[in-house]
């Protein structure tokens, strides 16, 4: 392996970390709002799940806001929210679950990209703890979407979200 570095990585987000984490924060705020919309359109059982997962995304947004302090995004990512509002607020329960399955998979890939870029360890630890659970969200939503194959539940071929497609 390469020679170990003698300089410990920073704990707090660096300037370049902040811009990346702001994007993630805006996306998490939008996900919270999309889950709220979906919950209103879902059947009884799915509503329980969507409310639970929506609450998790709110917790992610709040944690990122705490990490970023005054640099936190002040509003949700409007372009992302608008792009998925229709799909997230209509359709059968299986279709709704399928929509959020693809969104959760995209968020996992997005956060993996964030993790591979930021240097501050506080942000890295938070993002890692989020990725771990969003993978679980996806596995559950795959079953609720009627996916039977193990590959549909375990594999993630989604593309990460980027700030060019979804500017804040």
């Amino acid at each position: 392996m390469s020679a170990p570095t003698t300089t410990a990585p920073p704990k707090q987000p660096t300037k370049s970390d902040i811009a990346i984490l702001q994007f993630a924060h805006g996306i998490e705020l939008a996900m919270t709002a999309l889950y709220t919309k979906a919950s209103a359109a879902a059947g009884k059982d799915l509503k329980v799940v969507l409310d639970l997962f929506g609450g998790h995304h709110l917790a992610y947004a709040q944690s990122l806001a705490g990490l970023l302090g005054r640099s936190a995004a002040t509003t949700q990512n409007a372009s992302f929210y608008t792009a998925f509002l229709s799909a997230a607020s209509s359709g059968s329960d299986a279709e709704l679950a399928g929509t959020f399955l693809s969104l959760e998979n995209s968020l996992v890939k997005t956060h993996l990209g964030v993790l591979g870029t930021i240097t501050g360890t506080d942000g890295a630890q938070l993002i890692a703890s989020i990725i771990s659970v969003q993978g679980r969200h996806a596995a559950v939503l795959a079953s609720l979407a009627g996916k039977k194959g193990l590959g549909d539940i375990l594999d993630n071929a989604a593309e990460p979200l980027d700030s060019k497609t979804y500017p804040a």
């Binding site: 591979g116 771990s132 659970v133 969003q134 993978g135 375990l154």
Partner: peptide, 28 residues
């Protein structure tokens, strides 16, 4: 997830959590 805080390079953290996320799906 724990090792993310100990790995020095961001690309290694992402590689580790790419695997860790799959273990989470197994657990679910």
């Amino acid at each position: 997830q724990f090792y993310v805080s100990m790995l020095s390079q961001p690309k290694l953290r992402a590689a580790a959590m790419g695997i860790g996320e799959q273990e989470s799906r197994h657990a679910a």
